[in-house]
């Protein structure tokens, strides 16, 4: 019996050490032959890509994705192209791009070089850095005030990684906790179990805006390690990469991009009709001129 236990374990793992194939290289070719093009959306990445009250995706990135789909229609010459949508999470977005389930993701995905080995990113379309959500009366103004305090970040995010590494390198001396999702992390700050919640500032603005006690919360600190968000698609597909970048460039040059930015970041948006009040960062302004797809480290 016990020998079998070990034997079975080996068989089980052997199955997974086999390679899994099934990716397709050329997105435009695929769209042309199948007549289908699939956009990935996130369920709650406000305001990039999230579900509205009617259960349909919307957001800043989502609008960009729809522009890309239009361009694919033109490029392939298929007016009957069916544009489908598919929810992804931070856990499965990369595998789903790789295996061809979805063709392009316009969410809040950080463009970094580790991911660049597995997927390709378009021109960076947003910049965010890690900052802290604290209680307004806590007296915490910057990361230097966090010595001996408890800092929470969401498990499964790069922010957790950044804060951990920074705390090690610069000896800020805070205790880093992991929460299972953003809502729990917010709850831990509101209930005093943690003193600060370190996360992408744009997400913190969103969480603060939707909180019942918005006025009692504040987003503080200098942006730590500003990182770009970018639209993501399959690797080694220069034709499609050119198409996506053309769409972004055109929208920047025509002023559409800035209009969309104002709409999603500086006016009231659904579902709670709140204004994120997030002015365009210096990094993004610069990139609207540089049009770079340079990744974070």
């Amino acid at each position: 019996m016990k020998n079998k236990f070990v034997h079975n374990a080996l068989v089980f793992f052997a199955i997974f050490t086999m390679t899994i194939t099934g990716a397709m290289a050329n997105t435009l070719e695929k769209a042309k032959t199948t007549g289908k093009f699939t956009l990935a959306y996130r369920e709650s990445s406000i305001p990039f890509s999230y579900l509205g009250e009617d259960g349909k995706p919307l957001g800043f990135g989502w609008e960009m994705c729809k522009l890309i789909a239009e361009e694919v229609k033109k490029e392939t010459g298929r007016k009957d192209l069916v544009v489908e949508s598919q929810a992804v999470t931070s856990q499965n977005r990369i595998p789903l791009i790789q295996n061809g389930t979805v063709d392009v993701e316009c969410g809040s995905t950080t463009n970094n070089s580790e991911r660049g080995k597995q997927v390709t990113f378009a021109i960076n379309y947003f910049y965010t850095g890690t900052r802290f959500l604290v209680k307004a009366d806590s007296g915490i103004k910057s990361i230097n005030d966090l010595k001996g305090k408890k800092v929470v970040s969401t498990t499964g995010t790069t922010n957790y990684q950044i804060l951990r590494n920074l705390n090690d390198e610069k000896k800020y001396g805070f205790e880093l906790l992991g929460a299972k999702d953003h809502a729990d992390a917010l709850l831990m700050v509101e209930s005093g179990m943690a003193n600060a919640f370190g996360m992408d500032d744009i997400l913190l603005y969103g969480l603060k805006a939707s909180s019942k006690e918005s006025a009692k919360l504040a987003v503080v600190g200098e942006s730590i390690q500003v990182e770009p968000y970018a639209i993501m698609f399959r690797k080694d597909d220069p034709k499609f990469q050119a198409l996506v970048n053309k769409v972004i460039t055109n929208s920047i040059k025509s002023g559409e991009f800035e209009k969309a930015y104002k709409k999603w970041f500086q006016t009231n948006i659904p579902p709670k009709n709140v204004n994120l009040n997030a002015p365009m960062s210096k990094e993004l302004k610069d990139n609207l001129k540089a049009l770079s797809d340079k990744p974070a480290l």
């Binding site: 856990q91 990369i94 580790e114 991911r115 498990t155 990684q161 992991g178």
Partner: peptide, 19 residues
């Protein structure tokens, strides 16, 4: 917030993109 195996799985698959 306990840094045990499942937390490791969720955090590290994000950091390394090797789910």
């Amino acid at each position: 917030s306990i840094a045990e195996l499942t937390m490791y799985a969720i955090q590290v698959q994000e950091e390394t993109a090797r789910g």
